[in-house]
Design a protein around this nucleic acid. Structure first.
Lengths: 244, 244
DNA sequence: CAGTGGTCTAGACCACTCG
DNA sequence: GAGTGGTCTAGACCACTGG
């Protein structure tokens, strides 16, 4: 067995992808039992530990299920729980995933002293100013999300130019400043559109919106960005896989 | 090193808990580097593979972070992202986690033919009836969640007695029928209270609510329960860790 | 009972980071 | 170069499941 090229990636990953291929091309179908770990390892010419590492990844991805004493099985098709809210994507991507063409209008950018409520949310040194971005995001030209972004690195201000913000702020941070957002702690809040929001999003007052308040962190757990995104509830579905 | 009792649980789990204890009692503090895997394995008198299995669990739980070529570090305190919405808990537990004493009022139970919209959500054989449970859940006596549960195993009807439903439906299913719910696919929907909901939850009309529509599955991916839970937005915080 | 996945060992080499 | 975590091997025994 060649896996597949003799190229550099770890063996267990190549094994994993090989098995993944067998699942995708229906050599193994949902519900089928895989050969035992011993025999599979032998067939593939790798140690059992290496095979198990590959299987572990497949199990994490939900593609196989193990049952001690019985065997390892190809998972049944489950209801799509990809693209759940637990996967961090930009608003731009969220709009794209919903099948629309993303756009931006009504950009405002300013340095502000944070209000008290904001001060509490974004821990800053006293008196510090904050870079605030206000945008209305559109899907196929229709306003669907109202976005407020707060960056404490206010020195970035002079580096920014308006044209940067037609798309994903994540991309701007990544490409221009090499800041990579790794995860966000999000709070999910149902709200009603007030007068301002109803104008921004072209909806009636009291229209139900989903507010996503998100603290974005980089790989070293530094808080980079605090954002408040108001989504029109009729345009987006927010799903999540909840596990025990 | 004894871990700790010579009792039956796997060695790597005992190692994991031992290390967990060292973290909790501040022997290792956030940011500290652990000894290298080789030296730690030697100190503990286990193989490196076993130690790595313990570390792997700790890493999954976010308690340590590894950096190749550098070392393994105790995680910084992150904003609590335990108890996020990605962890499936019953409404009862949700109320308890929010610091309240859970209760139940206004229980109704009936067999119904599903409406068309419900029919679409719960795939059933034609003409089949569904067991519907309606409950208002209270926190410290105040109504906070309106719950509709739909069970397609309508034969369970005669088995149920009213007293079962003061608490978690999960527990009833587990204890009485040995049905174990493993995961749920949830949709998060912001809604406004209509007249009926405003009465049930003792709030004004148009009060913002979070509707959680959940399809519950057992370990074998069989859909057991479809539930609709309307949460008062002022009583609960829904958080989620979003990762790239 | 035989066969499965789960745990564990001892040892080896590789890939990455730092000084 | 020295030290770290990442990968890999060969072999062993245990715990659980089914017939």
């Amino acid at each position: 067995m060649e896996f597949i090229n003799n190229d550099s990636r770890p063996l267990y990953l190549r094994i994993k992808e090989y098995l993944e291929g067998l699942i995708e091309n229906q050599t193994y179908k949902p519900g089928d039992r895989l050969p035992s770990e011993n025999s599979l390892a032998n067939e593939l010419g790798v140690s059992r530990a290496t095979l198990r590492e590959a299987l572990r990844v497949l199990e994490e991805e939900g593609k196989i299920v193990k049952h001690q004493g019985i065997g390892t099985f190809i998972s049944e098709q489950k209801p799509t729980f990809l693209r759940g809210i637990e996967e961090l994507v930009s608003v731009t991507e969220t709009i794209e995933n919903a099948g629309y063409k993303p756009g931006t209008t009504g950009l405002k950018m300013k340095l502000v002293k944070p209000s008290e409520s904001l001060q509490a949310k974004v821990k800053l040194s006293e008196g510090e100013e904050i870079l605030q971005l206000e945008r209305i995001r559109t899907a196929n030209g229709l306003p669907v999300v109202y976005c407020l972004d707060h960056l404490n690195n206010s020195y970035l201000y002079k580096e920014f130019s308006q044209e940067d913000f037609s798309g994903s702020l994540f991309n701007v941070l990544q490409n221009k400043f090499n800041i990579s957002i790794k995860y966000a702690l999000a709070q999910i809040i149902p709200v009603n559109a007030d007068r301002a929001l109803s104008k921004h999003l072209d909806i009636s007052e009291n229209f139900p919106l989903l507010l996503l308040e998100q603290y974005h962190y980089d790989r070293k757990d530094r808080m980079i960005l605090f954002s408040q995104n108001y989504f029109r509830s009729d345009q987006f579905q927010f799903k999540v896989l909840r596990q025990r």
